Amino acid sequence: MSGVEVLVRQQDNEKVLLVYRLDGRAPTAQQCEDVGEDHGFYEPHAEAAHSFGAYAKAQLVREGFQGGLCDHAWKSWGHYGRNPFGQFSACSKCGVSAMTVHRKRSPQVSYLYDKWELREHVWRLWLQRGPVLGSLVELPHHQKGGAQ
């Protein structure tokens, strides 16, 4: 992610990320969430990092996920539709659904896990081990036009 830097620290036996922007502005909530997911967090939460001098507008990102995780066992993948079209499946252990959505004449693919749209590499990781159905919390920046 351009313009965003990350320092990884251990604090009280937990991984904490210090996220800051090179241009001196505070990173957005979406940037903090993306960085957290890239570092293996399921539900990254950001808070202002008050005591870091040179990193005055930095954000501390911690794992906020408290729910259960499932080592998924996917039922066979099915295909659907004409426009959009894609694949879908459900975990036989926890019931969470996963699907891909392709639009006709568009190179873009959406990767859905439960009701969440994820970036492909995060989606692929969560297909192996991910949150159980309904255990993630919706944040304001998840809504279109939400806080950035």
Rank of each mutant, 00 (worst) to 15 (best):
11 Q>P: 02
139 L>D: 15
118 L>A: 03
78 G>A: 13
11 Q>Y: 12
72 H>R: 06
7 L>G: 02
128 Q>F: 06
132 V>S: 07
113 Y>W: 03
145 G>V: 12
26 A>L: 05
10 Q>N: 11
34 D>M: 10
85 F>K: 14
122 V>H: 09
34 D>L: 12
83 N>H: 11
110 S>D: 14
95 G>K: 10
40 G>R: 00
114 D>E: 04
130 G>D: 08
35 V>H: 03
26 A>N: 05
48 A>Y: 09
71 D>A: 10
139 L>R: 15
61 V>F: 03
75 K>D: 13
36 G>S: 09
137 V>D: 15
75 K>C: 01
18 L>K: 01
20 Y>W: 05
8 V>H: 00
126 W>Y: 13
91 C>W: 02
102 H>L: 04
123 W>E: 07
106 S>M: 10
75 K>T: 05
11 Q>F: 09
23 D>G: 04
72 H>T: 04
35 V>R: 02
48 A>R: 15
105 R>P: 00
77 W>C: 00
121 H>E: 05
126 W>T: 07
107 P>F: 15
35 V>Y: 00
2 S>M: 06
31 Q>K: 13
55 Y>G: 01
115 K>A: 15
63 E>P: 08
63 E>K: 05
29 A>T: 04
80 Y>I: 06
111 Y>I: 09
89 S>E: 01
98 A>Q: 04
7 L>C: 11
65 F>Y: 11
5 E>H: 12
11 Q>A: 03
109 V>C: 14
28 T>A: 07
97 S>D: 09
4 V>K: 00
45 H>L: 14
67 G>I: 04
10 Q>A: 15
97 S>P: 10
18 L>C: 01
60 L>Y: 14
33 E>A: 08
115 K>L: 15
90 A>Q: 13
79 H>L: 06
103 R>C: 05
107 P>L: 13
125 L>W: 11
79 H>T: 08
54 A>G: 08
55 Y>N: 10
69 L>S: 04
1 M>F: 07
89 S>Y: 07
67 G>Q: 06
103 R>T: 14
31 Q>D: 14
100 T>K: 05
103 R>D: 13
113 Y>S: 00
48 A>V: 11
139 L>M: 14
112 L>N: 05
105 R>G: 09
4 V>E: 00
24 G>Q: 06
122 V>N: 12
120 E>G: 00
67 G>K: 08
78 G>T: 13
17 L>Q: 03
45 H>G: 07
68 G>D: 15
38 D>M: 11
14 E>L: 04
96 V>N: 04
23 D>Y: 00
78 G>I: 12
120 E>M: 10
7 L>H: 08
23 D>N: 11
89 S>K: 02
131 P>D: 11
121 H>N: 07
123 W>V: 00
47 E>P: 00
84 P>E: 04
60 L>G: 00
73 A>V: 08
62 R>P: 01
113 Y>E: 03
140 P>H: 11
31 Q>H: 14
141 H>I: 07
119 R>F: 02
48 A>P: 12
89 S>Q: 06
24 G>K: 01
51 S>I: 10
56 A>L: 07
3 G>N: 10
40 G>L: 08
58 A>L: 03
50 H>S: 13
31 Q>P: 01
145 G>Y: 12
18 L>Q: 06
142 H>I: 01
66 Q>G: 07
2 S>A: 11
111 Y>S: 03
97 S>G: 10
65 F>D: 02
82 R>S: 06
143 Q>K: 15
109 V>H: 02
3 G>H: 07
69 L>T: 02
